[in-house]
């Protein structure tokens, strides 16, 4: 009797396992289906809109002179590329962005750490910086032009300014809010001064730094575009602005799309770098 009872139990757990396996498989399959749908929707929606745009413009349901159809935009892009101006506009805007961003970010991180660690420095500068940050950086442009003239310096400095403030504010907050228990643990295990900074504080504020980089790259793109609208004779911002003045919406669209792509690519690079540099965040928040 007892023999058959354990036999029965074994059969029961075996079927239990099978049922569980099946359930897991079904969940997996469902998740895969959902992901496929995600990708399909993400690609299909813009594609459908483009087709509708094209059709609407071709049938003059919308004014093709204002809403230039995608095929015409592509042709105009071809012209600009053949003439080499799109590449050079892109290059100059990228250069301003990258230089300004790098300088601003480096300065913002260093100053942020110093202010975060030193109370007197913080008392001296934090209110000032917070006040300055409240001024839209683009509003500083005329002043910068007065000081530095119409050269590259003034343009790059607008990007420096916006990046600096975002990083500075993020880093100060991260240093101030740093978990004292981790500092203590570092201390207890022999990390003092520079090594405490290098092995505990710095890795601990990396997430805040990357958040600052992600936020400020978007703002930097806004600022450089606006700067090139009014104070430049080259760059993607100029391309858009000039196309408006000459009423060439097709070129304007090319400029706008390129700016959007720059934003997407730069943000993508920062996100990828963040994943690479902070694997511990990726894994704990899948």
């Amino acid at each position: 009797m007892t023999g058959s009872a354990t036999e029965l139990e074994r059969v029961a757990t075996a079927t239990g396992d099978e049922v569980l396996d099946e359930a897991l498989h079904a969940l997996d399959a469902a998740e895969r289906r959902r992901r496929r749908l995600d990708v399909t929707l993400a690609v299909a929606t813009p594609a459908a809109l483009l087709v509708m745009w094209q059709a609407a413009a071709d049938t003059h349901w919308i004014d093709p002179k204002i809403f230039t159809p995608p095929t015409t935009i592509a042709r105009s892009a071809g012209h600009l590329i053949a003439a080499g101006t799109l590449q050079s506009d892109l290059a100059i805007t990228l250069a301003r962005l990258v230089v300004g961003f790098a300088v601003g970010a480096a300065a913002g991180i260093v100053v942020g750490i110093l202010l975060g660690l030193s109370r007197p420095l913080r008392s001296a500068f934090s209110p000032l910086f917070t006040g300055l940050y409240a001024v839209p950086q683009i509003a500083l442009l005329p002043l910068l032009l007065v000081i530095f003239g119409v050269g590259e310096t003034a343009k790059v400095l607008t990007v420096v300014a916006v990046t600096f403030f975002v990083l500075e504010i993020n880093v100060v907050r991260a240093v101030r809010g740093f978990d004292p228990r981790l500092v203590e643990a570092g201390h207890a295990y022999g990390a003092r001064r520079l090594r405490l900074f290098r092995h505990v504080l710095l890795p601990g504020i990396m997430p805040a730094i990357f958040t600052g980089l992600r936020v400020s790259i978007a703002l930097a793109l806004v600022v450089i575009t606006a700067t090139e609208f009014v104070a430049s004779t080259n760059g993607l911002g100029y391309l858009v602005w000039n196309s408006w003045q000459l009423f060439e919406p097709d070129y304007m669209y090319v400029g706008l799309i390129t700016i959007a792509l720059v934003g997407v690519v730069l943000t993508g690079i920062i996100v990828a770098a963040e994943r690479l540099a902070l694997p511990w965040l990726r894994r704990s928040r899948p």
């Binding site: 228990r181 981790l182 203590e184 643990a185 207890a188 295990y189 505990v200 890795p203 704990s284």
Partner: peptide, 16 residues
């Protein structure tokens, strides 16, 4: 040499 074991672990989240 002393070593400390903390109530809340205080492990470094960024280290394996």
């Amino acid at each position: 040499k002393t070593a400390f074991v903390f109530q809340d672990h205080s492990l470094f989240p960024w280290l394996t």
